[in-house]
Amino acid sequence: MTADLPIESLRNLGPKSGQWLRKAGITTIAELERLGPVVAFRLVKQHQPKASLNLLWAMAAGLKGKDWRKLTAKEKDRLRKEVEE
């Protein structure tokens, strides 16, 4: 993945998700890769409490280059538990 691409170019993210990530200080895919989807989700939730777990799934899958709907229940459960820690 090209590191310096704007966050909005990550697969699965729409304009609203990109806006939320930018507000949380995450502007590029490289920054998201460094932080990881769980930390990024926590940062977004500080500014956007209504952000749902779908954003977490979108980021995690996008970093793997796949559609968020392809995440397994096991992957989603692991991510959910990490967010709750």
Rank of each mutant, 00 (worst) to 15 (best):
7 I>Q: 02
7 I>D: 00
7 I>A: 01
7 I>E: 02
7 I>T: 06
8 E>Q: 10
8 E>K: 10
9 S>N: 07
9 S>T: 12
9 S>G: 01
10 L>E: 04
10 L>R: 04
10 L>T: 14
11 R>F: 15
11 R>Q: 15
11 R>K: 15
11 R>D: 11
11 R>C: 12
12 N>P: 05
12 N>R: 07
12 N>Y: 13
12 N>W: 09
13 L>G: 11
13 L>D: 01
13 L>T: 00
14 G>A: 09
14 G>F: 14
14 G>E: 04
14 G>Y: 13
14 G>L: 13
15 P>R: 14
15 P>A: 10
15 P>T: 07
16 K>N: 06
16 K>V: 15
16 K>H: 08
17 S>L: 06
17 S>T: 10
17 S>H: 13
18 G>Q: 07
18 G>D: 08
19 Q>W: 15
19 Q>E: 15
20 W>H: 08
20 W>C: 12
21 L>V: 03
21 L>W: 07
21 L>E: 01
21 L>S: 12
23 K>A: 11
23 K>H: 09
23 K>V: 05
23 K>E: 13
24 A>P: 00
24 A>M: 00
25 G>S: 05
25 G>A: 10
25 G>K: 06
26 I>Q: 03
26 I>H: 02
27 T>H: 14
27 T>G: 15
27 T>P: 03
28 T>G: 12
28 T>P: 02
28 T>C: 07
29 I>G: 02
30 A>T: 01
30 A>Q: 12
30 A>I: 03
31 E>H: 09
31 E>F: 01
31 E>D: 12
31 E>C: 04
32 L>A: 08
32 L>H: 02
32 L>T: 09
33 E>Q: 14
33 E>G: 05
33 E>T: 11
33 E>N: 04
33 E>C: 08
33 E>M: 14
34 R>S: 10
34 R>G: 04
34 R>A: 14
35 L>Q: 10
36 G>N: 07
36 G>M: 05
36 G>W: 05
36 G>C: 10
36 G>S: 13
37 P>T: 08
37 P>L: 10
37 P>I: 06
38 V>E: 07
38 V>D: 11
38 V>F: 09
38 V>P: 00
39 V>G: 09
39 V>F: 00
39 V>Y: 03
39 V>P: 00
39 V>D: 14
40 A>D: 08
40 A>N: 02
40 A>P: 05
40 A>V: 06
40 A>C: 04
41 F>W: 03
41 F>Y: 14
42 R>T: 01
42 R>C: 08
43 L>H: 05
43 L>R: 14
43 L>E: 12
43 L>Y: 05
43 L>N: 06
43 L>K: 13
43 L>P: 00
43 L>G: 10
44 V>C: 01
44 V>K: 04
44 V>M: 03
44 V>T: 03
44 V>Q: 03
44 V>I: 05
